[in-house]
Nucleic acid binder design. Structure first.
Lengths: 264, 264
DNA sequence: TTTACATGTCCATTTATCGGACATACATGG
DNA sequence: CCATGTATGTCCGATAAATGGACATGTAAA
C-alpha cells in the first residue's frame, strides 16, 4: 500500500517535485481537504518532509489550513493562478456552447474531462433541463485515470504502451475503490479499444447508470480530452444510444476544429 | 529597473519560491506567453536560474513552450490543478447567479475580481444582452493591484497600512503603464476611502469609461473580492449611478451571505 | 565582419533539503 | 491514573541540490 510515484517521469529538482506531488495528492483527496496523516499514506513521502513543504506552500498561499479541522487544502493563490492557466488553455471555453447544446438536446448530463498524468480531471459539467441528473461528478473532481467513463474513450486512441502503463500504475488505486471488479474493468477497456469509443455499463462505481463517451483528438490523432454522457441503464434502446454517439461525435469534432483550426 | 520581490513575505525555501515567482511572472504577462528575456527583466532573477527552473517546471507539465514562438506559458497540468483549487473556493460558483442577474438588470458588464498578493485577478465576467460591452477584461487576467476598478472598492476596506504597502510596492509597475497619472490615481484612492466604494472616472487606462465597484467582505470585515460594473462616462446620471450602487451592494451582500453563512 | 541580442550550458561554491529521531498534545480505555 | 494509540510539531547533522558567474552557441541586423 501507499508510496506511488505521482510524476511517472522526472526525478530531478527535489523540493519542487515534492511540492507538486503534495499538491496533486491534496487535489486527489476530498474537497474538504486532507489531514497530514492521509497525505503521508497517499503520497508515500516522509512525514517531516511533508510537514516542511506544506509550511512553505502555506507561506506562499498555495495551501491553506482550516483552523477547525486542521485539514490542508489547495490555497486561494493557487486558484488565482489557475484562472490564468485555464484562460490560456481555451478548451473549456470553446466547449461551453456545443456541450450545453448537446446536454439540452439529449436531455442528459454531459461531462468534459482531460487527462493530467495518471489522473482524470473533470473540467466541465453541462446539465440538461431535466430534474433527473445522473452523475455525481463536479468540475475540479480528480480521480485515477481509467475509473471514469471518459477515460475509456481516450484509451481507445492512446498508444497501447501508454494504456498498459497507465493501468498498471493505477491498478492499486483502482483496487482501493469499493466494489471494483478487475475482470469487468478489463473487459470494458477491451471493448473501448474495439469500438473506438467508451461505453460504461454497470461497472466500477455505479450499478445503475450507463454512459457513452467520445475522445477529442488533436491533429496528430492524440486524445486531449473526452466528452461523455450518462443515463440510467436500460432507459435507452439502441437507437437512443446511437443518437447519443452521433451527438457526442459531432460535438467532439466541433470542439476539435475550434481548437486547432481557428487557433491563430 | 525591474527586480521586484513578488512574494512580499517569506524568503525561505529557495527553488520553490523561485518557481512560484516565475509562474506568477508568466501569469502577469500576455496570454501568448513570455520570452525568457522578458522573464529575466520582469522577475529580476538571474537568467541561468530561470532557465533551469523553467526546465523543471516544463518536465512537470506546469509550464509549456510554444515550438514556433519559443514563448513560455502556463501548462496544462497547472490548469488541471487550477480546476481542483477553484472548486474548493466556491466564490465564483456562488457569484454566478447574482452577478449574471445584475448584469442583465443593469444592462452593463459586471466583473468579479480577487486579490492575490500584489495582483488583482479577474475571476468572473458577466455580460449583458447589450451589443455594447464596455471593457476588455477577461477571466484569468492579472494586473498590478490598484490599477483596476475593483481594487478601489477593496482599498476602502483594507487597513491603511496594507493600502500604503500595496501602492508603494506596485508604484513602479503602475508607472510602466502608458498614460498613468499618479496624481489622479491618488485622488481616486482617496475618494474610494472616503466613499467606502470604488469609483472610476477617466483615470488610469481608459479615458472614456467609468465604473463603480463594491467590495465583498468576510465576517471580520476584510475584503475578499470585489464586483464592479463599467459604463461610458456620462451615460449615467446620478440616479443611474445610484441604481448601480444599490444593485452592486445587494449582490455583494448576497454573495457574502452565501459564502459565510450557508457554509457548513 | 562587427555588433547586438536571445538562448543554451558548465561547474565549483554555497546553501537548502533530507528524514531519522525526539517531543508534544489529546484522545480512548482498562 | 497511567498505558496505549494516534496525529502533529520540531531539531539538526549528513547529504544532495540549487546557485549564478562565466563561457558558448545561434541568429539577425548594421
Amino acid at each position: 500500500m501507499a508510496s506511488e510515484k505521482l510524476s511517472g517521469l522526472s526525478d530531478s529538482a527535489g523540493s519542487l517535485n515534492r511540492a507538486v506531488t503534495l499538491l496533486t495528492t491534496i487535489a486527489r483527496g476530498s474537497r474538504q481537504g486532507s489531514l497530514l496523516t492521509e497525505l503521508v499514506a497517499r503520497s508515500g513521502l516522509p512525514r517531516p518532509t511533508i510537514h516542511r513543504v506544506l509550511d512553505t506552500l502555506m507561506s506562499l498561499g498555495w495551501v491553506e489550513r482550516d483552523a477547525q479541522s486542521a485539514r490542508y487544502n489547495l490555497g486561494a493563490d493557487l486558484a488565482a493562478l489557475g484562472y490564468s492557466a485555464i484562460c490560456r488553455h481555451p478548451i473549456a471555453r470553446v466547449a461551453e456552447t456545443p456541450l450545453s447544446r448537446l446536454a439540452e438536446n439529449l436531455d442528459q448530463l454531459v461531462y468534459l474531462g482531460v487527462r493530467s498524468g495518471l489522473d482524470m480531471v473533470c473540467i466541465g459539467r453541462y446539465e440538461s433541463r431535466s430534474q433527473i441528473q445522473i452523475g455525481r461528478g463536479y468540475v475540479g473532481m480528480r480521480g485515477p485515470f481509467g475509473m471514469s467513463l471518459s477515460c475509456m474513450a481516450m484509451f481507445a486512441h492512446l498508444p497501447q504502451d501508454e494504456v498498459n502503463h497507465i493501468i498498471e500504475a493505477n491498478l492499486s488505486r483502482y483496487h482501493r475503490i469499493e466494489g471494483f471488479d478487475e475482470a469487468g474493468f478489463h473487459r470494458t477497456v477491451a471493448e473501448a479499444l474495439r469500438n473506438g469509443y467508451g461505453t460504461y455499463d454497470n461497472i466500477i462505481l455505479d450499478r445503475t447508470t450507463s454512459g457513452l463517451a467520445i475522445a477529442i483528438l488533436d491533429p496528430a490523432g492524440y486524445p486531449i480530452a473526452a466528452i461523455g454522457t450518462t443515463f440510467i441503464t436500460g432507459w435507452l434502446d439502441d437507437a437512443g444510444k446511437q443518437r447519443c454517439l452521433d451527438g457526442l461525435r459531432e460535438a467532439a469534432s466541433e470542439i476539435g476544429h475550434a481548437l486547432f483550426i481557428a487557433e491563430s
